[in-house]
């Protein structure tokens, strides 16, 4: 039986132009929505599947503002059975700070008899792109870690995980307890059912305060890459542009 802990992060849902706050410390999210990254949606899906396959449960965790409860509820709606909210402004928390807080929750739960023998995270957060929380968490908990995999299975105390390496699909097999970070693409995250949403509303969320003073992320300021003036050469409109396109293809040497 596995009680999988899956860690997610509320991030701005930015697809187009990015705006910064006046103090240049954060993305101005007034005009965008919030989401969790595709990697983390897959991690949640894997957590729910592993829980079902092992007769265990999945617990979702986030460190974020009060509004991040929205992302926890979304994970509860697709099958997580419990949620932990570390109530804090993530801006002041560097990767090592986030790790200390997650580790504290894992240790507290263990002392209460809830062992999270498998912790899943996304490969990297979509906003800060630090690529290190999973690895640091493994060291904090004294566990092995596998990174950037697309599928994760648990069988008899061993986690088998597969992901793409430079020479093909790589398989890892590590003993539990372990930490695994997930890349998008191995599983299709399910959509919440109406019943799932209703159920999610009734699950109490365990809210905890940070246990440690954060050391910070080392951020001086954010900047936007200089806007590149468009230098596009329009070859034409509609099917009539085909001869100009093929002229171009010939000039580039990709067709004769």
């Amino acid at each position: 039986m596995t009680d999988v802990l899956v860690c997610i992060k509320r991030v701005p849902d930015v697809a187009g132009e990015v705006l910064l706050t006046p103090d240049a410390q954060a993305i101005d999210a007034r005009f965008v929505g919030f989401t969790v990254s595709a990697h983390e949606n897959c991690a949640v899906e894997l957590a729910v599947r592993i829980a079902a396959a092992t007769g265990g449960t999945a617990t979702v965790l986030t460190l974020g503002p009060e509004a991040a409860v929205e992302q926890l509820r979304a994970a509860l709606a697709v099958g997580c059975a419990a949620a932990v909210h570390i109530d804090a402004d993530p801006l002041g928390f560097g990767p090592a700070d986030v790790v200390r807080e997650i580790a504290a929750v894992v240790e507290t739960h263990a002392a209460e008899g809830r062992t999270h023998d498998l912790v899943l995270l996304g490969n990297d957060a979509a906003d800060t792109g630090d690529f290190q929380v999973g690895v640091r968490l493994a060291y904090a908990l004294g566990r092995p870690v596998v990174n950037g995999v697309r599928t994760v299975e648990v069988d008899g105390g061993v986690v088998t995980a597969r992901g793409d390496g430079p020479d093909g699909v790589e398989t890892f097999a590590v003993p539990l307890p372990a930490v695994v970070t997930v890349l998008e693409g191995g599983v299709e995250p399910r959509y919440p059912s109406v019943v799932g949403r209703m159920k999610a509303k009734k699950i109490p969320i365990e809210t905890v305060a940070p246990r440690h003073e954060p050391r910070g992320a080392g951020r001086v300021r954010l900047t936007l890459p200089p806007a590149q003036p468009s230098t596009v050469e329009v070859l034409g409109s509609g099917p009539d542009a085909a001869p100009s396109v093929v002229d171009l293809l010939q000039r580039l040497g990709v067709t004769r």
């Binding site: 596009v232 034409g236 509609g238 099917p239 085909a242 093929v246 293809l249």
Partner: peptide, 21 residues
């Protein structure tokens, strides 16, 4: 951001490019 562009529906432009090639 592109170097070159054709303004039009890909379902009209691409078959015309294929035919021209």
């Amino acid at each position: 951001k592109a170097t070159y562009a054709v303004i039009g529906d890909m379902h009209e432009v691409v078959p015309a490019i294929n035919a021209e090639i």
